[in-house]
Design a binder for these strands. Structure first.
Lengths: 290, 290
DNA sequence: GTCCATGCATGCGTTTTCGCACGCATGATA
DNA sequence: TATCATGCGTGCGAAAACGCATGCATGGAC
């Protein structure tokens, strides 16, 4: 009465994903293999771990219990892999970084370019993601993030402070220059309350023209002349077809950090990338501040 | 860059055992398989995990690091298996018990006999061991132990209190009866200091004739007339060729416990065995006390 | 009602893994 | 020095695991 550790890993994947297919995808095997492993595990334990439904595999109590423990095992496996990586002193092999899309487009591509030239043996993967990537579970080795602090269990290097300001198309900028008191239409981010306080302070008639849930789309909207957008300085300055408009005082914004799990932090590849980041942002820091 | 969980298990086994062969034995596979898995893991990590020496495999720092984490994973796997067992309500499948050799021979065999009759579908394994068996690591499901308390993380049922007394062959008993003041030779357990205090209180001339490190051998020595042996009442009474000799006051001894890991305790098979133990020892408790 | 997408079960041929037998190296022993 | 025990490496045939293709069941869209 014992169970294969890989079968436990498989059970965890199926509990997480809900179907054989998605679990198989995550595990990098065919879904029939997943089905067979589950069956084998059930036979080994003499217990049903899942109910077979048409919409997928639903875990039984016992399946959930097994998954909980498998999760613990996964954490230890992750810890091991992180520590191995942290003591890896070679500049070879895989390295995964993640960063916000816009920051990548406008700046990090240059850092990446240089890194690939300096360290051609590193297999660099770039994960352009706007949501937070789980560094503890090794979805990435190094993350470039815009936030107030690195977060718990993570180490961080503060790369650069930022300001935001208002940007719009040249056409709109001209109209504002001609009639500063006229009502100005804003494009705002979905989650924000409305027109920035700093803008209302200068023009009480500022109003929300539209709400977007995606920053890239907002930039496009600004370029197309839909309205004024508040955005980090580096975006406005780095995007063609946008000019800064003096409808609000530039205000401080969350700084840019390079963060990694403390285990991974000392690794050669992560250190090397960090060094290039530091140099780049030191050189270009004026682009990010008012 | 990821590692197979079963390979981690294999690494742990090799670190523990030192050679491929012994590790393979513990894992229940051929040693060539172990060698292959180690090689595969090293290739996956790009790091050497062991040095190949003629006397076996010696782990590198990285190998030890991996083994440490694998050990953590093993603990979680054990916890899972225990919990599954604890909620198993069937009276089928494997059950492993461990008990001191002598207790098995003289009494537990009857409990086992009855258990096998009542629950023929249980595959009962009996581990006759005098050293403590690790219940946390599932070397046994239920242990019958002679000790003051069950121990941490374990649940216990106090089966019976015990006394010890002095026993010897009839020949020696006759001599003692004839000359109670004569010097009496004792056989004592290796670790004890010498003749029991309670014996010296009655006869100052009692002396150690020999020291043994094994209780079975001491019983044989007593039967053969080598000397007086202090032993639990149930052994002296249950062994042919031995009689109690009044050279010491019977003294309290550690009680007999049925112990199991708290996770396993509620399992049907463990509960059933425990019930029989309780009944048996209640019925025969006078054999164990003075 | 038909069509399609999703997801599982099954059979078959292939790939991978495994166990076994043999050979080699090393160290202890007589 | 000859012999034996222990332990590892390697090649080959067997066994197990795997991927793929096909078929079935269910539920939603038109």
């Amino acid at each position: 009465m014992d169970i294969d550790w890989d079968d436990l890993k498989t059970i965890l994947a199926v509990v997480r994903e809900g179907t054989l297919g998605r679990a198989a995808q995550g595990l990098g095997v065919n879904y029939t293999t997943v089905a067979r492993r589950i069956t084998r595990a059930e036979e080994a334990l003499g217990q049903k771990l899942f109910e077979r439904l048409t919409e997928g595999y639903r875990p039984t109590d016992i399946g959930l219990l097994a998954a909980r423990h498998a999760e613990q095992m996964e954490q230890h496996q992750n810890a091991l892999m992180r520590q191995l990586q942290g003591r890896d002193e070679t500049l070879r092999g895989p390295l995964v970084i993640t960063a916000p899309q816009i920051l990548l487009n406008l700046h990090l591509v240059h850092v990446i370019d240089r890194f690939c030239t300096l360290h051609p043996e590193v297999d660099l993967s770039v994960n352009s993601a706007n949501d937070l990537v789980d560094l503890g579970r090794r979805r990435a080795d190094l993350a470039i993030r815009v936030s107030a602090n690195p977060g718990d269990a993570l180490k961080g290097l503060r790369l650069c402070d930022q300001h935001t300001a208002a940007f719009a198309s040249p056409e709109i900028a001209r109209r504002i220059a001609q009639a500063p008191e006229a009502a100005t239409g804003w494009i705002v981010y979905d989650q924000t309350k409305g027109v920035p306080e700093a803008a209302l302070a200068r023009n009480r008639r500022a109003f929300v023209r539209a709400r977007f849930d995606d920053m890239i789309a907002m930039i496009g909207a600004a370029q197309a002349g839909l309205g004024v957008v508040r955005m980090p300085m580096f975006i406005g300055r780095g995007t063609p077809g946008l000019v800064q408009v003096p409808v609000m005082e530039p205000s401080p914004y969350a700084p840019i950090w390079a963060v990694a799990h403390a285990d991974v932090w000392p690794g050669a590849k992560v250190s090397a990338f960090r060094a290039l980041l530091r140099a780049y942002f030191r050189e270009h820091r004026r682009v990010f501040a008012a």
